[in-house]
Amino acid sequence: MTRLPVWLSQHLAALRVVLLLTLVTGLLYPLGMTALAHVPGLSGAARGSLLKGPDSSVVGSRLIGQAFTDGKGNALPQYFQTRPSDAGSGDGYDPTASGAGNLGPQNVVDTLETGNDPTTYKPGLLTQVCARSLAVGRLEHVDGSRPYCTADGVGAVLGVYHDGGTSGRVTKVVSLNQACPATPFLANYQGVPVSCATPGADYTAAVTVPVRGDAPAHPVVPPDAVTAGGSGLDPDISPAYAALQVPRVADTRHLTEDQVRTLVAKYTTGRALGVLGEPVVDVLQLNLALDRTYPKQGA
């Protein structure tokens, strides 16, 4: 019997492997996964965990958050509000632009607006938190103050100049996040008058000093109401943030607070396996339940 050349045998073996892997990974595996995705109990997740509104049309996914605002970006008072999102422009929650703001706890100084161009203004993380807390406080009629925030919702941060560079006698103090002609949140610092900041000026030689102020150590507005999730698509809020919103939603929909709390409890998920993570409330499912359970009060 004539034996094939070694090079031809190797090529035929490689061809058989390619055909086998193509059959297994290109046909059998996809068909198997597709069949598994249609098993009752798994099909919903495989299709994106989609949710339908009262008219049976798809309104979103329970895995992706969305904003409940009007055309001007104002919160719709009859709905529970989600946490902030950095995914995409506008209201955020753009699945194609998922991502975090990439700002850390040291990001406390804003880039002030120059030349009457709003696009040049870039608030730091501290000012974003301060502004959001102030807005939530106004919406929910509670105290929105936080440590290291001014009354007008920016980071309470001073630029302090010393005659010895980073130490010594204080010679000049600037409120870095309050552009002139704003009145600084603090009149004097160590006996030196505090001035407002000039947009475009270089304050890198100053020592950055955040000022705590007299806000409560435990703010009324919870952290998830003022910080964005890592993906920018977080569909959940904490039970504390949901509880803060109950009076507003109940009042707007002419319901009792107990009626609203009952729905909040229904859509609250506990810790995974009883120990992992924190309890959360799915905002989209909760708002859909509100409209479905109390259709006359829904908008």
Score class of each variant (00 low, 15 high):
residue 251 D to H: 09
residue 96 T to Y: 13
residue 244 L to Y: 07
residue 256 T to F: 01
residue 12 L to K: 06
residue 10 Q to P: 00
residue 173 V to W: 10
residue 287 N to V: 01
residue 155 G to R: 01
residue 1 M to T: 11
residue 275 V to I: 15
residue 262 T to Y: 01
residue 178 Q to G: 02
residue 226 V to H: 07
residue 290 L to V: 07
residue 98 S to V: 01
residue 151 A to W: 03
residue 123 P to Q: 05
residue 170 V to L: 03
residue 271 R to S: 04
residue 227 T to Q: 14
residue 53 G to F: 06
residue 246 V to I: 15
residue 162 H to Q: 09
residue 89 S to N: 11
residue 71 G to H: 03
residue 34 T to N: 14
residue 89 S to G: 12
residue 61 S to A: 06
residue 94 D to L: 09
residue 113 E to P: 09
residue 84 P to D: 04
residue 9 S to I: 04
residue 277 G to N: 12
residue 165 G to A: 06
residue 58 V to C: 02
residue 184 P to G: 06
residue 200 G to K: 12
residue 290 L to I: 04
residue 276 L to F: 12
residue 109 V to A: 09
residue 167 S to G: 02
residue 181 P to E: 12
residue 222 P to N: 03
residue 208 T to D: 05
residue 123 P to G: 06
residue 287 N to T: 03
residue 192 V to L: 07
residue 133 S to C: 01
residue 152 D to G: 03
residue 132 R to S: 00
residue 251 D to S: 13
residue 277 G to M: 11
residue 227 T to G: 03
residue 274 G to V: 02
residue 92 G to T: 10
residue 140 E to F: 05
residue 165 G to D: 09
residue 254 H to T: 10
residue 205 A to M: 02
residue 31 L to F: 11
residue 153 G to I: 04
residue 104 G to R: 06
residue 126 L to E: 13
residue 248 R to M: 14
residue 233 L to H: 08
residue 31 L to P: 05
residue 248 R to Y: 12
residue 166 T to V: 08
residue 212 R to Y: 04
residue 27 L to D: 02
residue 71 G to Q: 08
residue 88 G to Q: 08
residue 285 Q to G: 15
residue 212 R to A: 15
residue 288 L to C: 00
residue 109 V to C: 11
residue 277 G to Y: 13
residue 90 G to K: 07
residue 41 G to Q: 10
residue 88 G to Y: 08
residue 32 G to D: 04
residue 77 P to F: 10
residue 269 T to G: 01
residue 185 F to W: 09
residue 296 K to L: 04
residue 160 V to S: 03
residue 234 D to T: 08
residue 86 D to S: 15
residue 31 L to Q: 12
residue 42 L to I: 03
residue 45 A to N: 08
residue 40 P to R: 12
residue 127 T to P: 13
residue 100 A to S: 15
residue 169 R to N: 05
residue 209 V to L: 07
residue 72 K to Y: 12
residue 181 P to I: 10
residue 217 A to C: 05
residue 25 T to C: 08
residue 169 R to D: 12
residue 198 T to I: 13
residue 209 V to W: 03
residue 88 G to V: 07
residue 19 L to W: 13
residue 262 T to A: 02
residue 255 L to K: 11
residue 87 A to D: 02
residue 136 V to A: 06
residue 8 L to N: 00
residue 235 P to R: 08
residue 244 L to M: 10
residue 202 D to C: 08
residue 30 P to L: 04
residue 263 L to H: 01
residue 90 G to R: 08
residue 134 L to D: 05
residue 201 A to P: 14
residue 93 Y to S: 00
residue 58 V to R: 04
residue 239 P to C: 04
residue 183 T to E: 11
residue 135 A to C: 03
